[in-house]
Design a protein around this nucleic acid. Structure first.
Lengths: 152, 152
DNA sequence: AGCAATTAAATTGTGCGCAATCAGAATTTG
DNA sequence: CAAATTCTGATTGCGCACAATTTAATTGCT
């Protein structure tokens, strides 16, 4: 006989599993659209960050994206190999690597700007619902981040 | 000068990015708790599925978890190496691999049942808020899944 | 100036996640 | 019944994620 406590271990009860599957499904939705640009999902959000603010260090970029150098270094090397950006050591501080978009990298923004609206449409969410969900997730991220930060 | 259309490409406007970072933060919250059990996050949700229903095929398990054999086969081999389960070919249909928990795998459920409440507490969400967010994410997953399914 | 501490990236190693491909088994169909 | 098709897992390859370690550069302290 199933215990009452089993309820808390059910897969369909878990917020984490809903989040986990939803994130994967969202990435899967982007994949065919990004394939046209020759980008993976993580490369896409990296380009979003760089279209907003160019000529920043790997560290600053990592803080925006919540990614560390173990992820960013090879990813940026691939984007560099694709001709979208250049990685150069800072002359002032040789420890720092500055990321600069190339003309090609800047130009890709025009192709990318059609993507967000296509995605929004497919979520079938109203602008209000989307903003609400997005902000709830952002707030939850901040709350969870307190725990993970203070333990390190 | 920044174009109006740039707004749609801003990182902090993206639902996908909020989802992406929140999912990673949630996984990071589980990590130290799961370390005590010797499980990764994906191994944990796999165990959740198996605690609910044991002796199922890799295919059925994959459908529950939204994971394919490329992910599950090596993951299940690791869980088998840890002594938590056994993988056996079905005698009726040799194509099918049946996953069975060992005594040790079943016993781990008792240790795991403390985890969900600890996580819920750290989200600082009321039970109602948590259920609402979880159900919204599940619904969004189902909507997005329509698009990704119909294209294949 | 000299040396420890700090900082920024890079590197290494493990484990997903998934597309693509392959192999073997079962089923369908002419 | 034989050929074609479908089905289930396994394998391979690539790209994240992230912990841990290493390397090199800078800063702080005496």
């Amino acid at each position: 006989m199933e215990q009452l406590s089993d309820h808390y271990l059910r897969l369909d009860q878990q917020l984490c599993f809903a989040l986990y599957t939803c994130e994967k499904e969202m990435t899967k939705l982007y994949r065919p659209l990004l394939e046209d640009l020759g980008l993976t999902y993580t490369q896409y959000i990296t380009m979003l960050a760089l279209w907003e603010k160019d000529e920043i260090s790997v560290k600053t970029l990592g803080q925006k994206l919540f990614l560390d150098s173990g992820t960013l270094t090879p990813l940026l090397k691939r984007l560099e190999a694709s001709g979208l950006l250049r990685r150069e050591r800072d002359a002032q501080d040789e420890r720092v690597v500055i990321v600069r978009l190339t003309e090609q990298g800047i130009a890709m923004k025009q192709q990318a700007c059609a993507i967000p609206l296509q995605i929004v449409h497919r979520t079938q969410l109203s602008p209000e619902e989307l903003i609400k969900l997005r902000d709830e997730l952002t707030q939850l991220t901040n709350i969870l981040n307190q725990y993970t930060e203070e333990e390190s």
